[in-house]
Amino acid sequence: MTYVLNRLLSVILTLFLITLVTFAVTNILPGDVAMMIMGTQSNPEALAGLRESLGLNDPLLVQYGHWVGGMISGDWGNSLIFKKPIFELLAQKAAASAIIVAMSMIIALALAVPLGVWAAVHRDKWQDTVSSTSALMGVSLPDFFWGILMILVFARWLGWFPSSGFVDPAENFLGTLRHAFLPSLALGLGLMAHLTRMTRSTMTGILNQEFIRVARAKGLAERTVIWRYALANAIGPVITIAGLQIGYLFGSIIVMESLFGYTGMGWLTYQALLNRDLPLIQSTVFVIAAVVMLTNLAVDLLYVVIDPRIRLG
């Protein structure tokens, strides 16, 4: 219980630091929000008026207070380019991206764990070489290359999946999944490499442990030994690495969603950066940081469930 409390406290502290950093960074960035809204040719008096009404003339601390207060109450301000409340915009796009992130993680784990186990069981044999070579290929080729390849193979040649676009999950959830599949697969292949290597190395270590020999000496079937006894011990570090990859994924979806015309967080971030939509950038960065933190918290808590040694430690 103290462990969970400790983790929660550290999450709250980190979230606070994140608000400080995002606020500071967007304030340090050159450029003036008011000028961005009204354009460079605008009337200086109107500009000053807008500045005043946006609170840009207040001391930084007051501005920060307003911003954090707004964040907490759900008033995240309006996007300059979409002319819509940011909160609403982000909620919608984040849901779309969550589908891609989750799907690519599932694909990566579903491929990496069996492949890594397979390599560990047949260590230093041809299976190992096949596994590490394919994992290496996954990681050495950039995501967008996989994306292009997916579009070519599955959309152009086979026609199984749409090559581009997004469907609102509220209208047609299956359609959303179909649109999300190819970008997820492309991302998953890139993720898979690290996870395969991690699975292989932890499994190799576990398979050399005495309790594996004991399990075999008990007469348990080899598949029980590997998939129950060994994997239960090896999966923890793999999940930790998977959790850390969530951050990397949010970086990758910027390219991937734009490539597939999938209008999620990644696409939104790209648009915000391109158009210097400062309020939107601020909120997006905050949301991404928070999501990465919370998923890592979830992973750590999951670890407690998997490994009984942590509960007491």
Binding site: E210, F211, Y229, I306, P308
Partner: peptide
């Protein structure tokens, strides 16, 4: 076996 510390699976009761 020799090593009682490692002869039991740490994640099972």
């Amino acid at each position: 076996f020799q090593e009682p510390m490692t002869a039991l699976n740490p994640v099972f009761t």
